[in-house]
Amino acid sequence: MNAIVEYIKEVLGGVKSLLTGLSVTVKYFFSPGEIVTQEYPENRATLKMFDRFRGNVYMIHNEQNQHTCTGCGICEMNCPNGSIEVISKTIVVDDKKKKALDKHIYRMGMCTFCGLCVKSCPSKSLAFGQEFENSVYNRSDLTRILNKPNSTIAIKQ
């Protein structure tokens, strides 16, 4: 007799514990007050990343198509994956030979977004963008040249 009572108690206790759990889910079913689902990509227009978000690396250019990169190669040295390659050239300014940036090659496919290039740049010419949709059809599209065509170095004020 006692065994039967114990058994029934156990079953009822089990059913009660299941109902307690169910009460939580039922509560959310009838009061979907805090919907956290984001309907991406429908919300593309309103989706805003945080300002420190580490997306693609880009070079800051001003309106006159000028950047501040001197081609020193510190970012290349600091990159742990070898995803940056700085090719410099020699230009002649006021009859003086000067080192300047030719191509700043950035291979996004190798980048781990650690932030060391942006942080170590002495002339603050690199920055992280907000772009996060980085998929491309061709792998070669991931290799980018960061300085825009015909861009020049900004003259220090």
């Binding site: 514990s17 299941l18 759990g21 939580v24």
Partner: peptide, 13 residues
């Protein structure tokens, strides 16, 4: 809520 959902659940126990 976590305790309600899982900790007390008889199957989980």
């Amino acid at each position: 809520e976590y305790d309600k959902l899982l900790t007390g659940n008889v199957i989980f126990k």
